[in-house]
Amino acid sequence: MFKKEINIMVNNEHYVREVAVNRTLLEFLREDLGLTGAKEGCNEGECGACTVLVDGKPVNSCLMLAVEADGSYILTIEGLAKGDLLHPLQQAFIDEGAVQCGFCTPGMIMTAKAILDEYGNPSEKEIRKLMEGNLCRCTGYTRVIKTVKKTAEALAAK
C-alpha cells in the first residue's frame, strides 16, 4: 500500500487522516496538522530537534513513519501547557534562561518531560546521559541541565 488511513491522538485531539506511507511523523505533524513546534534538524536521528512523545516515550519523529503512529497518543510541545498555564519545565526554561536561539528547545523540553516522568528525580549525570540525543548548537547545555535538575527537584518535593 502507498497510502493508509491512520487513527491518531495528538495533544488530546483525535484525527483520522489518510497519509502517504513514506510520510514521516514529523512531516505529518508539521505539514498536515500545522504543529511546527517539533523541528527538522538533521533528519537522521542525531539532533533530537524533532523529539515528540509517542505513548509517553521520546522518539525522533523524523525517523518514524506517520503510519507507524497509528493508534498512538502523541504529545508535542504544543500540548504541554494547560491553557495559559505553562508546564513547569517550560516556565523553568524561561525563568532560568535555558533558551538561546530556541530551535532545539521544543525537543529538549519533550525529552526532559519524558525523563522526569520515567525516572522521577534523576541525578545531573543521569540527565546528561539521557539528554545526549538533543543537540544545542548555541552551546547552552549547562543551563539546560541545571534547569531540568531544578524542575525535577521541585516536582519531586511536591
Partner: peptide, 9 residues
C-alpha cells in the same frame, strides 16, 4: 547506542 530517542525505537 544512539540516544534515548533512538533506543526507544
Amino acid at each position: 547506542i544512539g540516544s534515548l530517542q533512538v533506543r526507544n525505537r
